[in-house]
């Protein structure tokens, strides 16, 4: 039994969908993958440079991770504010979205966008519209993983 209201497709409709699938312009898989590689790689390289900078000032690689993240989020926020980061993602796709700068973009963009709807219900509420799912499931997954590890090993 399908979902309520789900439509039974006739043979004609199914044939049509098959035809449309063939006629539809394909996504440029290779080009997208290559640009994602370089855009993502370059962003990570910048991150590595920032981390190296902190390590030059006496931090260990582990200690430098957190300030590096903050700097990268700042860079993402600034580029978003200037209206450039959407162009990075338009070309680089996941190469722009997957790095933490993309996470920053996902929080800053709605905050800017919903300013006309007010500081509380606009900016305040919409800040997490895109980043919310990532936080929710990241926290949930980390809890489950930590719990399982704790139950098995006794130290998470």
């Amino acid at each position: 039994m399908g979902k309520e209201g789900a439509r039974q497709l006739t043979q004609e409709m199914q044939d049509y969908q098959t035809m449309a699938n063939q006629m539809r312009p394909k996504k440029p898989l290779l080009k997208n993958a290559v640009t994602a590689f370089f855009v993502g790689g370059i962003i990570c390289e910048v991150g590595q440079g920032v981390q190296w900078f902190f390590m030059q000032h006496g931090m260990t690689a582990k200690e430098a991770t957190s300030p590096t993240t903050v700097v990268m989020i700042g860079v993402g926020a600034l580029l978003t504010g200037l209206g450039w980061y959407d162009r990075v993602v338009k070309r680089g796709g996941m190469g722009g979205s997957l790095p933490i700068t993309g996470f920053s973009n996902a929080m800053v963009a709605p905050a800017m966008e919903y300013r006309p709807e007010g500081l509380i219900l606009g900016v305040g509420a919409k800040l997490f519209t895109v980043a919310g799912p990532v936080l929710t499931y990241g926290l949930a997954a980390a809890f489950v993983v930590g719990l399982v590890r704790y139950l098995i090993t006794g130290v998470a």
Binding site: R24, P25, D86, V89, S97, N105, A109, M112, V130
Partner: peptide
Amino acid sequence: YPIELGYQRTPT
């Protein structure tokens, strides 16, 4: 999406 949120448009 919000204007400044980056995303890739599909060919269709």
